[in-house]
């Protein structure tokens, strides 16, 4: 089947089998290797992407579901101000996730900040526990997301009062 969709802000199209997974399509057809493909059951959270504004595991999204939708991967998210806030927050707090889980952690954190501009530590831990990886220090991640939340709030304030 032919798939037409918006990927990281650009109209794209490709051929795929109806049951192909979005994670495979993104990696194999578009070389977006920030999307990891590990458990293929949605448990590990390493393949998170934004599908029509909702953060979902790409391994559980079949190709036919992607038609006409908007997909944002970590590569697309890296072009946004929200990414800069998180990157800066992580840097300031000393949170250094590994390359394998970094993209998924940032997307999970971004989705939380979208819902809760000032999240509590417990909310952050719960949201980031979606991503199974042993590399990170939970306390540093909490500080990182809270710092990012402050940066984000400041940026929004300046934007509103410009």
């Amino acid at each position: 089947m032919k798939l037409d969709f918006i990927l990281n802000g650009e109209d794209v199209s490709c051929q795929a089998e109806a049951g192909d997974r979005l994670s495979e399509i993104l990696r194999d057809r578009f070389s977006l290797l920030g999307v990891k493909s590990d458990c293929r059951s949605g448990h590990c959270g390493l393949c998170l992407v934004s599908l029509n504004g909702r953060t979902v595991p790409a391994c559980l999204v079949p190709a036919f579901r992607v038609r006409g939708s908007e997909v944002i991967t970590i590569e697309g998210f890296e072009q946004t101000d929200e990414y800069s806030d998180l990157r800066e927050g992580f840097r300031k707090s000393g949170a250094e996730p590994c390359e394998f889980c970094r993209g998924a952690l940032l997307l999970a954190a971004a989705s939380l900040l979208e819902e809760r501009p000032r999240p509590e530590a417990q909310e952050i831990l719960e949201r980031l526990s979606t991503v199974f990886c042993r590399c990170h220090d939970p306390a540093a991640l909490v500080r990182g997301v809270q710092t990012a939340a402050e940066l984000r709030a400041r940026r929004m304030y300046f934007r509103a009062h410009r």
């Binding site: 949605g42 909702r54 953060t55 979902v56 595991p57 559980l60 999970a108 719960e126």
Partner: peptide, 9 residues
């Protein structure tokens, strides 16, 4: 049930 991302689907 599942993670927040799985619950989104």
């Amino acid at each position: 049930i599942g993670t927040f991302a799985v619950r989104n689907l």
